[in-house]
Computed example of a mutant assay.
Amino acid sequence: MRRISLLWKVVRITHAERFAVGYVLLLFLVAVAVWLAEPSITTLADSLWYCFAASTTIGFGDFVAVTWGGRILTVLLALYGIFVVALVPGVMVNYFIEFNKIRYNESLVLFMDQLEHLDTLSKEELREISAKVRNFRRK
């Protein structure tokens, strides 16, 4: 559950949810405009399929924009799609950096707590701390 809340925090900080919602809205708006502008695209479902193929830069070619308006809208949608697809790895990398930072800080706090209470630790716990320090110095 902590990981999901951390991921959501990273999404909020980077405003990635705005881009995702904007992408979906733009996809539907352009699909309606292309459906109205392009004579070869006769249904809204075909227009949605065309816009999806164009925005993901797959471009199957089963539908083609022939009007200037349809072509311009396709270019804008494709550029926005590329931007959104490029945003996902950045958000994921940021998530993993934050997650590792939290894990590091938690282990550091635990280690510092053990150091503060050296007099109450058993010999086995002292050996574990000593091994951790040796491993840290080797790295």
Score class of each variant (00 low, 15 high):
M1V: 13
I4E: 14
L6M: 07
R12P: 01
H15G: 06
H15R: 12
H15Y: 09
E17R: 07
E17P: 00
F19L: 13
V21N: 10
G22R: 05
Y23N: 03
V24N: 03
L25N: 09
L26W: 06
F28N: 06
V30E: 04
A31S: 12
A31N: 03
V32W: 09
V32S: 05
V32N: 05
L36F: 11
A37H: 09
A37F: 06
T43H: 02
T43P: 05
L44I: 12
A45S: 08
D46G: 01
C51K: 01
F52S: 07
F52D: 04
S55P: 06
S55M: 07
T56R: 10
G59H: 08
G61P: 00
D62A: 12
V66T: 15
T67K: 05
G70P: 04
R71M: 15
L73P: 10
T74K: 07
T74H: 11
V75F: 15
A78K: 13
L79H: 10
Y80F: 15
V84F: 05
V85G: 08
L87Y: 04
L87C: 04
V91H: 02
F96T: 07
I97Y: 09
I97A: 06
E98V: 07
R103C: 08
R103T: 05
N105A: 14
E106K: 09
L108N: 02
V109Y: 09
F111W: 02
M112P: 00
Q114W: 05
L115E: 00
L115S: 00
D119M: 08
S122M: 03
E124I: 13
L126Q: 05
R127V: 13
A131E: 15
V133W: 08
V133L: 13
R134W: 12
N135P: 03
N135H: 12
R137A: 14
